[in-house]
Write a protein that binds this DNA or RNA. Structure first.
Lengths: 199, 199
DNA sequence: TTCATTTCTTAAACTAGTTTAAGGGTAGTA
DNA sequence: TACTACCCTTAAACTAGTTTAAGAAATGAA
């Protein structure tokens, strides 16, 4: 499997959008990550397993979903290019996780194992700063989603999703979007018809 | 207004649950915070204002809420003792915020202004680490809430809220809880009756 | 190119949650 | 003490979203 001379290149480019990095730091990171390809529908974690990696998406789309007591899947988030995905609690505490992570499209990812990430935190202190900022950004996104969920109708939530994530909305099957919005695919279908009819 | 010799004492105790602190660091923090009391219903931020402070709750309960286009309020989160509350985007970007923060009970808070927090980040690097962990913890909580919102009925969400936040559930008016769950107070009332009747 | 699977749509019957309106209980204040 | 504002409840009519079932359209593997 050939990628480029530096397998960490897309990840370094991502970090550099936050703070500058030196060559020595880059090669520390290069030594502590792994890179791999995923097939469509391939899982990198399932409920009950320990989440061993912090995963960065180089190419493709992944979803993190939970399963309710009746066995139904519910999409908690999507991660496309330059986004992160992991079961944070399972990863940090090394405990069995409750979520599932699956590639929706054929994808390419970079992964950092727990011990490697902790090693990097120790040797590159600005990574604490960077992941603090990344987590804050993702926290704010999630907070906006909670506000949508408690204050809007399904149609408004669907419209908001289209405006905020056009690259995802056009690329994902509607069943996946319905699951993310918390409605049935059938109801999403009627919503879409109403929007076309201008209601 | 008299609090104690160290006005930062509850905040330091909070930080020490993450990492040890030395006297020099503590006095740096002591010099960069302010402490105040809030009356019931007092606001520390309203929509359109810039959120000037990261706020730590020493005593009492605050809520962060948004207002929808029809003018209705929706509770995004509550913060009780030893929790943080702020409009993160407005705080970091110094831009007008979209949320409102209000004391539900008479409360006591510790506040850190943006410049002071950045000064502390520079001089006490482990604060980056601590706030990274705090934000991750709060992110996970919010993710669980999103899962509840998209996968459960109102009754299940109410039961979950009671189990997860008993200290809040018993202390808040039901109207505030209904707003947080994304339902009307009338429907919460019928839910509560059904639970008592064992449905 | 064909077959099998996944994805999307329609419609009818159903359930979950809202709205409106009215009334009762309680706490804070003049 | 009585007033006011707030909080909670009940019930009936309504609207938003689900379920079930069936079929059409698109996609992927052989």
């Amino acid at each position: 499997m050939y990628f480029s001379i530096m397998k960490s290149e897309p990840l370094i480019a991502h970090f550099k959008t936050y703070l500058p990095f030196e060559e020595a730091e880059i090669s520390l990171i290069e030594d502590r990550i792994s890179r791999r390809r995923l097939k469509r529908r391939e899982h990198i974690m399932v409920t009950g397993e320990i989440c061993r990696y912090y995963t960065f998406v180089v190419k493709g789309v992944l979803r993190l979903y939970g399963i309710d007591p009746t066995g139904k899947e519910h999409n908690i988030l999507f991660a496309a290019e330059n986004d992160w995905i992991s079961d944070i609690t399972s990863f940090h505490d090394t405990t069995p996780g409750v979520s599932n992570i699956q590639a929706i499209e054929p994808s390419e990812i970079i992964q950092i194992a727990q011990q490697d990430l902790y090693h990097l935190y120790l040797n590159i202190p600005k990574l604490d700063r960077i992941f603090k900022v990344i987590t804050e950004e993702k926290y704010v996104e999630l907070q906006n989603r909670v506000f949508q969920n408690i204050s809007s109708t399904a149609q408004q939530r669907y419209t908001y999703f289209h405006e905020k994530y056009p690259h995802l909305a056009t690329r994902l099957p509607n069943t996946q979007i319905a699951s993310y919005l918390g409605i049935t695919p059938e109801f999403l279908s009627t919503i879409r018809k109403e929007i076309i009819l201008g209601k």
